[in-house]
Design a protein around this nucleic acid. Structure first.
Lengths: 349, 349
DNA sequence: TTGTATGCGTTATCAG
DNA sequence: CTGATAACGCATACAA
């Protein structure tokens, strides 16, 4: 019956287990209780005598016991307590702010955040999603660069909720938390129009992104409402600071350069700013997204709260993990125009 | 007895298992092979007939099979493939750059990054370390705000390597990747001295942090070498932008205000910058850490590569997870002075 | 090349 | 309140 021929108690579990940690069984034995009782005590379950509990906890402490998460999850039929977040680039302050919000909310609910960067490459994002699913995250939060998410429904049907942040899911029914992009952009342009500008340029991010298209639509709304041609000074697909700088430089050195610029995100605003400094040309400027030092530089922006976006997304994910899908919710967060000078410059300064 | 009135085979495993995923056993049955063979095929092990493998893979695909990580780890005696990173604040660009580097390196080695923020609070950091250990990360990477790490040796003895980034471990023998803080600070101050400044102020972060103390030591080195009193305009413990702003304002409004400032990190530099703008006072300025728009603002800095720091730290962690401790290695990364104007202003502008 | 039996550490069932 | 025993899903001897 006994596995051990000698009388001594020596488990001798696996040949080359890295650091064989003490098990609950050992704790139980030391405390002189059964496995289940030890389990109860360790997990703080109610039906345990106070004395017993203390004895177990003592033994656990002495042995340096630590619950084996994998075994615990397995026994409970769960898989992990990880939530995956994929953004374009963790080093971009917008994304890292979102990540911070997600992490805060998740942690306060006993979940862990694991992150990855897609570098805004759809193929890479797909790969990462696959990896995360393989590793059995409980939920997936995406700032997605993919333009069609219909194949992600297989992820959902695996019981893994998907939450879209900043950019909506396309061809899929899923939770999302977005900004009121169109409205924010319209506000910005109307602000420029109110200052008397009639020639307003637009520099935008990757045109395949919904966020971009919405902001452009807002730009168009405002221009059209003012009976102006929205298509005159428009540049798309400036997807990093350098590209934005190039576009801005080009725009501002035209013979009929616009007197004002609306830039569609923080990277682009910064690129445009660099061009303006380089050329010493100072059109009015309003940028989407706030950024550090924008106040110092006097840049008027369409601000919002990325940390709150992250928190909200995490809340949606947590909700979807429990209650079975009571129809996805799309949350839209507001933006607000923050005037700092650059957006208030007049047409002929 | 049977929960299923019909005679069909229905396992009915757990009452409320979220989404009972197909198991390897089911795959094996469908493919008409044994569990072990299925396991081999799925894991890409060598000893399987090509035809069998295909049959298994087919079945797996049809069932939407997915390996249960928890079970797999448990059976192998492993615990997780997570590496934990704790920094002060994910939203701080320095930390998020480090995180990016860590993530890159980890992912390319099949590991996953999980993150948390300590808010620079030692107690919170301790709590997070405990959580991470509980959740059995394979390694811990810390930008630590704790001043004594001797109790972390229990983490190491559990087989979890600890790697310190940016700030060294105290009272513990562990891997670390640091900057040459003292040297970088000395370079900065010597640069100011070379421009003819004799009254140079210092504004530093939390003085309990080694990083801070080293940078201050570098400041002192340079001042002493120039036979100047280093203690005249020194402010410690400015641990956020606002505090730095306050200290800088105070310093610059003294009757004998210094003609130059050395600020010990990116937050402080930005705070000082704000004070300078507010007061329209323009002492020479050199800051430790580069930051976005520093070039636009013409700020001379002691630059380094935080992404590379992260990568290096991850490499150390990965190394320590394999080879059993061949003595911890302390890596020191260089800094370089980047002149952009603010550090080149002369004593009497 | 394939299959059988057994164990990984925990939790759940259900009877004491 | 406590305890024996059977899962959980997979991987590893060791045979066949």
């Amino acid at each position: 019956m006994a596995t051990d021929p000698s009388g001594a108690t020596s488990p001798q579990p696996h040949p080359d287990r890295p650091h064989s940690a003490p098990t609950l069984a050992q704790v139980a034995e030391r405390a002189g209780v059964s496995l289940k009782t030890a389990s109860r005590a360790v997990n703080g379950e109610p039906r345990v005598a106070e004395a017993t509990r203390e004895r177990v906890l003592d033994a656990a402490h002495q042995l340096g016991f630590q619950l084996n998460r994998a075994a615990s999850l397995l026994a409970r039929g769960l898989t992990s307590n990880l939530v995956g977040l994929i953004t374009g680039d963790l080093a971009n302050p917008f994304y890292s702010a979102v990540a911070k919000g997600v992490e805060q909310e998740l942690r306060s609910h006993g979940m862990q955040l694991t992150v990855a960067s897609s570098d805004e490459e759809p193929a890479r994002e797909r790969g990462l999603i696959g990896e995360f699913v393989d590793r059995q995250v409980r939920a997936l939060i995406l700032v997605s660069t993919i333009t069609d998410h219909s194949d992600l429904s297989s992820v959902q049907s695996r019981g893994i909720p998907v939450v879209f942040v900043d950019r909506p899911g396309v061809g899929i029914d899923a939770d999302s938390v977005l900004l009121d992009n169109r409205r924010g952009a319209r506000d910005a342009v109307e602000h420029l129009l109110a200052a008397g500008h009639t020639s307003i340029g637009f520099i935008g991010d990757l045109s395949r992104l919904d966020t971009h298209r919405e902001r452009f639509a807002g730009f168009e709304d405002a221009m059209r409402a003012a009976s102006l041609d929205p298509g005159r000074w428009v540049r798309h697909d400036a997807h990093d600071v350098q590209a934005a700088l190039d576009e801005a430089r080009d725009l501002l050195t035209q013979p009929d350069a616009p007197t004002a610029l609306f830039t569609s995100n923080n990277r682009i605003t910064i690129g445009a700013l660099r061009a303006m400094i380089e050329l010493d040309a100072w059109p009015a400027l309003v940028g989407f997204d706030d950024f550090e030092l924008a106040d110092v530089l006097g840049v008027t922006v369409v601000a919002h709260d990325p940390v709150e976006m992250g928190r909200t997304a995490a809340r949606l994910a947590l909700g979807a993990m429990d209650r079975r899908h009571e129809g996805p919710s799309g949350i839209v967060l507001p933006t607000r125009l923050v005037q700092r000078g650059s957006g208030e410059r007049l047409p002929r300064g």
